[in-house]
Amino acid sequence: MDYIDKNPYSKFKVGLDETHREILSTEELKRIEEKQIQIERLAVVRDIFVFACYTGLSFSDITKLSHTHLQQRADGKEWIIINRSKTNNRCRIPLLPKAKEILKKYEDYPKISGKAILLPVLTNQKMNSYLKELGDICGINKNITMHIARHTFATTVTLSNGVPIETVSKLLGHSSLKTTQIYAKVLDQKIAEDMELLESKLNQV
């Protein structure tokens, strides 16, 4: 209403707190993958969680994942090509063997027979509740959720294994590299390994 001639908040800055993203280590992920589970609901949830760890897809994207999202590319490999529910950014993800294996396992699963979807995903609430149970039986003292799977893909599965951050950004469907750089911050182990490699190269000179 032009009652004041200056904006009293013009020099006010809002600071952003650094976010801590929980991830699973290689050993923890392996423990979940290899755990013998007799209870069917937990075994299914485990498989879907592991699938997310090897594709980086979010819960909502896995929920809508169908045959139309699978494409055979010129390289002969099968890819997932999907627009993210959250941002509508396109993700192009080559299927890793572990993810492929899980899709194969549920090809004729009765609960999704005749449906377009590829995996028998429960509600997010139920998934996270069962994942907590899964964490307990695997002896992992972390609050395991479907979102942790996406973080684990970004760090433990890709960045830690030398996949360039630009590639990880594309796989996750991020519109900005800044978003992906949040994951790079948590990789002290990777920094240590890279510096060791540098040290050995410098010693050879």
Rank of each mutant, 00 (worst) to 15 (best):
S160E: 13
L187N: 11
I165M: 10
K170C: 11
A184Q: 08
G173H: 07
D188L: 05
G162A: 07
Q189G: 13
A154K: 00
V157Q: 02
L159S: 12
Q181N: 11
G173R: 06
L172K: 00
L177H: 03
A184G: 07
T156V: 02
K190T: 12
T152I: 09
T156D: 01
T158D: 04
Q189E: 15
L187A: 08
E193H: 12
S160V: 01
L187I: 10
T158C: 01
T155A: 03
H174L: 12
V157I: 09
I182C: 02
A192G: 12
K185Y: 01
K178C: 10
L177A: 04
D188W: 06
Q189I: 13
P164Q: 08
A154N: 10
K190D: 07
I165E: 09
L159M: 12
N161S: 06
T179I: 05
K190P: 08
P164S: 13
K170E: 15
L171C: 11
I165L: 10
T179G: 08
V163P: 13
F153M: 01
L177Q: 04
K185T: 02
V186P: 08
S176Y: 03
N161M: 01
A184L: 10
K170Y: 12
L172A: 01
S169N: 15
A154Q: 01
Y183M: 03
V186F: 07
T179L: 01
K190L: 06
L172E: 02
S176K: 09
F153K: 00
T179P: 05
I191N: 07
E193P: 13
S175A: 13
S160Y: 08
E193M: 04
F153N: 04
K190A: 04
V157P: 04
G162I: 00
L159H: 14
G173E: 09
H174F: 14
D188F: 07
I165V: 14
Q189C: 10
L171E: 14
T155V: 03
S175Q: 07
T158L: 00
L159T: 12
I182K: 02
H174P: 15
F153I: 00
Q189H: 15
A192F: 00
L177C: 04
T179H: 07
Y183Q: 08
V157R: 03
L171Y: 15
A184P: 11
T167G: 14
S176I: 06
K185Q: 05
L187K: 04
L171S: 10
L171D: 11
Q181V: 03
I191G: 06
Q189S: 15
L172Q: 02
E166I: 02
V186K: 05
L159C: 10
V163T: 12
E193W: 11
T152S: 09
A192R: 00
T156K: 00
T156M: 00
T158P: 06
S160R: 10
T156P: 11
S169K: 11
S176D: 07
Q181F: 07
K185I: 01
S169Q: 12
